Simulated assay, not measured.
Amino acid sequence: MSSALNVVALIGSPTASANSRTLLLVRHLLEELRERINISLELVELAPIARSLGQALQRSEVEPQVERALATIESAQLLVAATPVYRGSYPGLFKHLIDFIELDALVDTPVLLAATGGSERHALVIDHQLRPLFSFLQAHTLPIGVYATPADFDGDRINSAALQARIQLAAERAAGHVAPRAAALPAPLRRIA
């Protein structure tokens, strides 16, 4: 059996909730990934570190739990980045956390993007907000993102066949993308001005 792929799931909700739709969406994505590839999973949740993160103006000022979260994100071989949508974009503290990631840390790292929002009108957040954010870090954002609304859930279950199909497709495509990479040696990082 091949070694497990280090998958880090970043839950970008600044408020903690066991019923978080963003967390539920990620759990379903991870279940589908587990069915396709051997993964080891680390979960990074914004909520427990949000207050201390907000007090730091630069990475050298962050508290140890924030530094651990950043190091975990930077170690990902596949990053699942999921966030709720507030007023048409991701939360400010989510962006603040991403701002502290080392510029070279996610180069060529595959990133599966996901978001939840109150209605379909926020669905473009994946392509208009999240994709450019991770592209700046030279991460490889995977083509299939997943967006969900409250109507897609019934408690902790997904009641939307369309959303379930999208989750399966995203996991299938992500697995197809990372499986060959997991066996290959990483290429040396080239820097440009």
Rank of each mutant, 00 (worst) to 15 (best):
I73F: 07
S75G: 10
S75Q: 12
A76D: 00
A76Y: 04
A76S: 07
Q77F: 02
Q77I: 06
L78F: 03
L78Y: 01
L79I: 01
L79A: 00
V80A: 09
V80P: 06
V80Q: 04
A81C: 09
A82I: 03
A82K: 11
T83F: 10
T83R: 11
T83P: 11
P84F: 03
P84I: 02
V85H: 00
Y86T: 08
R87K: 15
R87G: 07
R87L: 11
R87H: 14
G88F: 06
G88T: 10
S89M: 08
Y90T: 05
Y90H: 07
Y90L: 10
P91A: 09
P91F: 07
G92E: 04
L93Q: 12
F94P: 08
K95Y: 02
K95M: 05
H96I: 04
L97F: 05
I98C: 09
I98Q: 03
I98N: 07
D99I: 13
F100W: 02
F100P: 12
F100M: 15
F100G: 14
F100R: 03
I101A: 08
E102V: 12
E102N: 14
L103K: 15
L103C: 05
L103M: 13
D104N: 14
D104I: 02
D104R: 13
D104T: 15
A105W: 03
A105Q: 11
A105L: 05
L106K: 00
V107H: 14
V107K: 15
D108N: 15
T109N: 04
T109D: 02
